[in-house]
Design a protein around this nucleic acid. Structure first.
Length: 572
DNA sequence: GCCGTTTTCGGCCCGACTGTTTTCAGTCG
């Protein structure tokens, strides 16, 4: 039983209670939502904690009643309260809340007046024009648009696409004379895996003029809202962008507020409140008096906290850690000394060995591992033993003449369905760096997948597991295996876990970085680049590592070539 | 339904935008 499954039960209870709409329930509903959020953000599996004797009521926002329900959910997979509520509200009404503009009240009216029970019903009613009689013509249009958005993208884009969109938008904003300063906040600044919409902070000397100029940005397809404080638009392709106008003397407060996350903001506001302050996007107030607002640092300082890096702001213990002076010194891109997972034109890459080396040296690296695919990955023209031997010869030759640069001859070897590797072990033992990855048979019972990975880890020839969950964001879910057993085996065998920086992978995910570190596993951040310029994608991996609380010392490829050689000598 | 270094009762994060029961409820972030 995963945390998200437990959280979903509580979230659905909250949704149904809200649709049923009994007024005195408002704060009970909030309790269910708080509990769902708390459980979702836990770094460890609640099921394991409870099995280990932990009382769920020790968690913040969870008391005896919810603790009882947690035990019930762990035992039966659901809870009686939810079943009873579902009887009171037949159909799939909570799914209507996914449509932007529909909240619990509207949901209830749609059900009571039109008998709507599901998204499908809603779409039918909207298309036949039945909604306007109840909610008005504008609401009907808004619902149709909301449904289209929901179907089109299911919302989110990769951090890479968002970063590119911000850069393009930035060129437009830069040229507007009335804009003094601007910055992307929100999930983009926190470097989340995927981005729902962009929040852009704008400090302008003349808001009306600035808004007018902003709206001339060619990719804007539709204007959603236009007020004194904010302008919301949708770009071609469906990305929503909210521009927030802020005063320079409240810039820090606004930046903090719009960076989020929501859960982090709530945590911080409660801390402010407990100290007799009020915190909003306009500043930190004591009564009517504003005591801090210009910069984030000012506000953190007034709350007796050090500045908290945006990547940590997820309400995963960062506020308490800050208060205790125990924030990690997060790893930075400039700490990296090499890249340990790259491809060349020998398989599915586009660049030669020499081009990859040149690109690595340009980036100040001291070492680079070439790790092309092995024979099972036929679509990538993977190498068999004979081809690999030849390729390794070429890599070693290319490395011979290099001064102060270590070119490692490696491979990304396939972990077959039974856990064997698809290249002869003797050959693997001769290589400088061996990444083992799963590229096929992703669906397997959890215990079989665990055995598969354990066998690979314990083979004695692997240096690292590549993209350990083999997920593709928005396309393929993560491998299911016993995370604790596999991580523990990695720690014991001295096998690293990779943070693969490809934007559609970002694998290990951030919360598992934290867990792996706690269990004593060494981590590696790799670009998995298929061309020379692709080495820069490693930045997205650094973002994941930072979100996973990692420091320089936790990541192997922050070590100098000399230190890395010493590590290699003792590891296998 | 949860919680407590003023409290076991009486609170619970804060503000903007939209549409229109035109004074505020509903929704969003």
């Amino acid at each position: 039983m995963e945390n998200s499954q437990i959280a979903t039960v509580f979230a659905e209870i909250a949704d149904i209670l809200e649709i049923l709409g009994e007024q005195d329930n408002a704060f009970r509903i909030r309790s269910y939502r708080n509990a769902a959020r708390t459980i979702d953000a836990l770094p460890d599996r609640l099921a394991d904690l409870v099995a280990g004797g932990k009382d769920p009521a020790d968690l913040p926002g969870i008391g005896t009643s919810l603790a009882g329900k947690i035990h019930e959910i762990l035992r039966t997979g659901t809870c009686g309260k939810l079943k009873e509520l579902r009887r009171q509200l037949p159909g799939h009404l909570p799914e209507l809340l996914q449509v932007k503009g529909i909240g619990p009240q509207t949901c209830k009216r749609l059900h009571d007046k039109l008998g709507i029970k599901s998204l499908k019903d809603l779409k039918g009613a909207a298309e036949r024009g039945k909604i306007s009689a109840i909610l008005g013509e504008k609401a009907q249009q808004s619902i149709l648009k909301g449904l289209a958005t929901l179907e089109a993208v299911s919302g989110r884009i990769s951090i890479e696409k968002a970063t590119v969109a911000v850069a393009a938008l930035g060129r437009h904003l830069q040229a507007i004379a009335t804009i003094r300063r601007w910055e992307a906040a929100g999930s983009c600044r926190r470097r989340c895996e995927t981005i729902g919409d962009l929040d852009i902070l704008v400090d302008a000397s003349d808001r009306a003029k600035a808004a007018n100029d902003i709206l001339h940005y060619a990719p804007i397809e539709r204007i959603l809202a236009r007020g004194d404080e904010k302008v919301s638009v949708v770009l071609a392709g469906g990305l929503q962008v909210d521009f927030r106008f802020v005063k320079p003397d409240a810039y820090g407060a606004a930046l903090m507020y719009f960076t989020g996350s929501k859960a982090h903001n709530i945590r911080l506001r409660k801390r402010a409140q407990a100290a007799g302050f009020k915190l909003s996007e306009y500043g930190l107030f004591k009564g009517e008096k504003r005591v801090a607002s210009r910069s984030e640092k000012d506000i953190h300082k007034a709350l007796t906290l050090p500045w908290i890096p945006p990547e940590l702001r997820e309400d995963r213990g960062e506020v308490d850690a800050a208060a205790a002076g125990q924030l990690p010194a997060l790893i930075e891109r400039k700490d990296l000394r090499g890249d340990l997972h790259t491809h060349t034109n020998a398989t599915d890459g586009a660049s030669t060995i020499e081009q990859m080396v040149a690109a690595a040296r340009e980036r100040g690296y001291q070492y680079l591992a070439i790790t092309d695919h092995s024979k099972s990955v036929t679509v990538a023209h993977g190498l068999d033993e004979k081809a690999l031997r030849k390729h390794v010869g070429r890599i070693r030759k290319a490395g011979e003449g290099l001064k102060r640069f270590w070119l490692l001859a490696g491979v990304e070897v396939d972990i077959l369905r039974d856990g064997r590797l698809d290249i002869d072990t003797a050959l693997l033992a001769d290589l400088d760096w061996v990444v083992g990855s799963v590229h096929s048979v992703f669906e397997m019972p959890e215990d079989k997948m665990t055995e598969r990975l354990l066998r690979a880890v314990e083979s004695g020839v692997l240096d690292c597991i590549g993209h350990p969950f083999s997920r593709l964001l928005g396309q393929r879910g993560p491998l299911r295996f016993d995370v604790d057993r596999v991580f523990k085996a990695c720690a014991q065998a001295g096998v690293c876990l990779e943070i693969n920086a490809q934007p559609d992978r970002l694998d290990l995910p951030d919360v598992y970085c934290k867990r792996a570190r706690q269990m004593g596993v060494t981590l590696v951040i790799s670009s998995d680049s298929h061309k020379a310029t692709g080495l820069d994608l490693i930045d997205y991996g650094v973002g994941v590592a930072r979100r996973g609380w990692l420091e320089k010392k936790d990541v192997l490829n922050t070590r100098s070539a000399a230190e890395f050689r010493r590590y290699k000598k003792v590891s296998r």
